[in-house]
């Protein structure tokens, strides 16, 4: 069985651990460099990206994480986790010294934080999601849509070469269509060993995104 860590500095760690355990992996929280050495893959949970960024640097996890990501460790990031994996943030927060928030990088994308709006615009909707063919009832049928919860969610504004778009939100699927300006927005991407979603499958009981990630960790997808 593969062991997958969940970065446990802040955020909905428990939900990801539960989703991984229900999907056939062993899961453990990771807060220290030594714990990182024990895992085959890592989930960066939903939470506050500015807080997670600061804590990874303060507790000397940022460099070991970057090294593992460069060395090919599979990582899945949801929401704040997607921001942490992005090479670039369109609108980073700045600290009191004017320094922008940092990410671990690895995924050649540009994300915009809170792009779908504030909490009153947070929404749930159904999405088609590429890469879940394993879950289709039969080979000639499509997999069921993913029920996705977006909470002050980011979107992806630019994808680099080799980044596959797995899901988008159409204007008719978002709560606040004005922010989308008529364009479909990218909300799930994959580049080789790195997977990221703007939304939170871990809070809905949707297990297939975690199953896909476990397949990536096993080298089966």
């Amino acid at each position: 069985m593969v062991t997958i860590g969940v970065l446990a500095l802040q955020g909905d760690v428990r939900e990801h651990i539960s989703a991984l355990e229900h999907s056939g992996a062993a899961a453990m929280p990771v807060r220290r460099p030594g714990e990182l050495d024990a895992v085959d893959g890592l989930v960066i949970p939903g939470g506050e990206s500015t807080t997670i960024d600061k804590l990874t640097r303060i507790f000397e996890l940022a460099d070991p994480l970057k090294k593992r990501i460069e060395a090919g460790m599979p990582v899945y990031g949801s929401c704040a986790g997607m921001i942490m994996l992005a090479e670039e943030i369109a609108d980073p927060a700045t600290d009191l010294k004017g320094e922008p928030q940092q990410t671990l990088g690895g995924l050649d994308i540009t994300v915009r934080r809170n792009a779908f709006g504030r909490q009153r615009e947070s929404f749930e909707t159904d999405l088609d999601f590429r890469g879940l063919e394993f879950s289709a009832p039969s080979p000639d049928q499509n997999p069921a849509p993913v029920h996705a919860v977006f909470i002050r969610a980011p979107w992806v504004e630019r994808v680099g070469e080799g980044v596959e778009v797995l899901a988008t939100v159409e204007p008719s699927e978002a709560s606040h269509t004005a922010t989308l300006r008529g364009a479909a927005r990218i909300v799930a991407v994959r580049s080789r060993h790195l997977l990221a979603t703007s939304f939170h499958p871990e809070v809905t009981g949707e297990r297939r995104i975690h199953e896909l990630f476990i397949r990536i960790v096993r080298g089966e997808a």
């Binding site: 955020g11 506050e48 009153r120 947070s122 929404f123 999405l127 088609d128 049928q141 499509n142 939170h200």
Partner: peptide, 28 residues
């Protein structure tokens, strides 16, 4: 397969969205 498309209208202010927001603050 014909039903497996995105047909549900987006929902705001649901219990899941409200409670989910607090889940993201955990450990903070």
């Amino acid at each position: 397969s014909s039903e497996a498309t995105s047909t549900h209208a987006p929902v705001t202010g649901s219990s899941r969205v409200k409670r989910g927001m607090a889940e993201m603050l955990k450990g903070g």
